[in-house]
Design a protein around this nucleic acid. Structure first.
Lengths: 233, 233
DNA sequence: GGGTAACTTCGGTCCACAGCGAAGCATTCG
DNA sequence: CGAATGCTTCGCTGTGGACCGAAGTTACCC
């Protein structure tokens, strides 16, 4: 394994301006270079340099749209790496906090985890899908069953499995940071998340990863997941 | 979350000499400062500086013994973080290698993963323990059952559960790098690993993480795990 | 077309820090 | 005791790279 490659990746993360940028991107959103400059507390020129490096190293990807360049994390693996580093950083603090994950109650309840839903809500959704045998969770992959469409029907979501062009799994388990249980990542997780946002069941806060459940969403989710499971969210 | 803390951790990893040292320590062994200096390709003074920083940041711990200072990784979390970075570094290579994990066949079969056994052998042991209901694996913790002693008896290993002083779980699942399935980490995993080494069922190579199964070990493990499961190792 | 906004490239300054040589502690051995 | 070994502290040098200002490029709008 190429040591220099590894050192390179780590040193890219190891500069405050870039760290701040990467952490901001953990919410799965795409930001323009200008916004990221402001977030990172540097001038646009400096940020531009940073972003080029991060893209070249494969940590970010960008989408050119008019005169804007929207940057976002390149992959789930990058997000996982960052969480790994955060974990160690949190560990370093003297107080060996048994309490894991974010302190913010809203964050613990529901938040963006890269491109899907995490927090107690994310775990509840995963539990529901498993209990209804819509999916089966293996250690590193989730297998979809033909009950999936039926189980997703109550929230009027249909999941088109024909994305299966690539060999990437449509569903993957993601260990929830705070809850220490699995929620759903991968295309299925992303699809569910977008659906809940599009239908105004969930709303993103202006900044940050927190998700708020709307009144409409509470009704629908309680009905979908069942009152008992919903009460734990 | 303190951004600077995170940047600090990453920047510590992001220097070739330190990266090399940390990677060498991934085998779970403890090395003296001199050895690490040689491994990292720097003079002892320089290495000494690096090691102080790594210890202070909580990435390493050291044990003073005579005039030697034995350094090793501070925790499972640090090892996990390093694997996360390695993952991203490997991803960056153009060839989107479907093939995961180490290329070395011996490494894929059995290797040290921090302080326990990984590779196909590690996975087979975990499978056996689960199949025999000696443990139950949850997403982030393994629960021991009272069948454990019985299941461990054939290899003449008794696991004293009274270590349970700390609130840390005695058994944790660890996602195998190459196999993409779980093997056993935590005190139980460590105990099993040491037992197999002490009884000369497994031998460590001089350098590196690879483990070799001895003839004696092959007989014993085939008997313990069953011929079918052993044939997959 | 000109004006503006998003972004990059270029040139230059400045500082953090990796690395080494030399000297200073500690511990073990004869 | 003195010699040797493992490791650290100190002082110094050299360089990589973070950052900014200014100028250049691209795309949008009127």
């Amino acid at each position: 394994m190429n040591t220099n490659e590894i050192a390179r990746i780590a040193s890219l993360v190891g500069v405050p301006a870039r760290t701040t940028i990467l952490l901001a991107l953990m919410d799965g959103r795409a930001y323009t270079a200008h916004e990221l400059a402001r977030i990172g507390g540097v001038t646009p020129q400096t940020a531009s340099g940073h972003l080029s490096l991060l893209v070249e190293a494969g940590l970010l990807v960008f989408l050119k749209q008019g005169r804007h360049r929207y940057h976002r994390l390149a992959s789930q693996e990058v997000a996982a790496m960052l969480e790994g580093i955060m974990q160690v950083a949190a560990l370093g603090r003297k107080t060996p906090r048994i309490e894991t994950g974010p302190r913010n109650p809203g964050m613990r309840r529901a938040r963006m985890c890269y491109d899907h839903v995490g927090g107690r809500l994310g775990v509840a959704i995963a539990d529901h899908l498993v209990a209804e045998q819509a999916i089966m969770l293996e250690p590193d992959v989730g297998v979809l069953t033909d009950r999936l469409q039926t189980v997703l029907a109550p929230i009027e979501l249909s999941f088109d499995q024909t994305h299966a062009a690539s060999s990437l799994p449509l569903c993957r388990p993601c260990l929830d940071w705070g809850e220490r249980r699995f929620h759903i990542a991968g295309p299925l997780g992303q699809r569910i998340c977008n659906h809940l946002l599009d239908n105004d069941y969930l709303r993103r806060r202006e900044a940050g990863r927190e998700l708020k459940v709307t009144a409409k969403g509470a009704t629908a989710l309680c009905h979908w997941l069942g009152a008992e499971r919903w009460s734990e969210v």
